[in-house]
Design a protein around this nucleic acid. Structure first.
Length: 304
DNA sequence: AAACCATGCAACCGCCAGTAG
DNA sequence: CCTACTGGCGGTTGCATGGTT
């Protein structure tokens, strides 16, 4: 017998949230902030555990959430960040405004993994599958740095997400493939065809290079803490052609909840859309979307 | 039309680290 | 120092939906 969950012990409700529950939680947090999650259910009159409330708020009710499909730039960024951070979904999410770790995790498991495999890339190591398969069992294959690079110890508060240049997502734009910044590198061999493109994680971890590693660590910390550096690095090093995954860009949607605070205008997330349709305002420019997200975030959390 | 399958997503579970008492 | 509590995270599950046979 495994141990029972907190919800079981307290005979609390589980499963999908009803619109009434959502409204109670939303109203309570909007008014008082969340403070101590464990006391929220009682204060808000909910038969839920604090953990469940927290999850619901973070993944669904937060006003700064961006609903809708992921844009191609977001997917590319997730792939890039996953190559560096591994399955650290919360850290990846911190660099995608309006997206939750759960959402990103789901996207990765259901979609991006497959797309990478279709492209012949191992979604775990981010190396070409052929290389990974060949490397199995022979000692010559150096271990991936994913999950081992000092960047994974990065724990300081995340910077605002990098504002990527429009060039970066322009299919016509070919970033310099030989650029190298940190442990990730992408390069082309002299063969010319896409199949000759090589990329992977530079193995910087040798005994002789420990000093360099320290430098690298500093560099990466700086990189991740600086949106501008991050954007520049991504623009210079990311193999857009390698991750040339067919994803249709969707317009960025924002709810108009920020401009309407009355309960009549209360927006309802996805599961309630049938009953209370969202009034979506399509944004044509991702930059505008990003700015609005920041404004929304500031407005939503500034006083909490 | 029904059964089956694949997919996407919301929510739960269990573990861990930090912290207050 | 120990213990209990809490928040946070990543992995996993289960359900709803849509597509296919």
């Amino acid at each position: 017998m495994g141990r029972q969950s907190c919800c079981y012990k307290q005979k609390l409700r589980k499963g999908l949230w009803s619109p009434e529950e959502d409204e109670k939680l939303l109203r309570h947090i909007t008014k008082y902030g969340h403070g101590c999650w464990s006391s929220i259910p009682k204060q808000a009159g909910l038969q839920r555990c604090g953990k469940s409330c927290r999850l619901r708020w973070i993944n669904y009710l937060r006003p700064d959430l961006k609903r809708g499909t992921f844009s191609q730039e977001e997917e590319n960024l997730i792939i890039e960040l996953h190559a560096v951070l591994g399955n650290r979904w919360s850290q990846i999410a911190a660099r995608l405004p309006g997206r939750t770790d759960n959402e990103i995790k789901n996207l990765w498991n259901s979609c991006l993994k497959k797309k990478l495999k279709q492209k012949g890339i191992d979604p775990v190591t981010h190396k070409p599958l052929s290389e990974v398969e060949n490397g199995e069992g022979n000692g010559s294959n150096k271990p991936s740095l994913v999950g081992h690079h000092p960047i994974h110890q990065y724990t300081s508060p995340p910077p605002p997400p990098p504002k990527l240049s429009s060039n970066w997502f322009n299919p016509e734009f070919s970033p310099p493939m030989t650029a190298s910044y940190g442990p990730l590198y992408y390069g082309t061999t002299t063969g010319g065809s896409a199949n000759n493109t090589t990329w992977g994680l530079v193995q910087t971890q040798t005994e002789e290079e420990e000093e360099e590693e320290e430098e690298e660590e500093t560099k990466w910390t700086e990189l991740l803490n600086s949106p501008l550096l991050m954007a520049a690095a991504l623009q210079n090093q990311t193999p857009q052609s390698y991750y040339n995954i067919e994803i249709k860009s969707e317009p960025c949607y924002l709810t108009n909840s920020s401009s309407s605070s009355s309960s009549n205008d209360m927006w309802w997330p996805q599961t309630q859309q049938q009953q209370l349709p969202l009034q979506h305002e399509p944004l044509q420019n991702p930059d505008i979307c990003g700015k609005d997200m920041q404004t929304l975030t500031a407005a939503a959390f500034g006083h909490i």
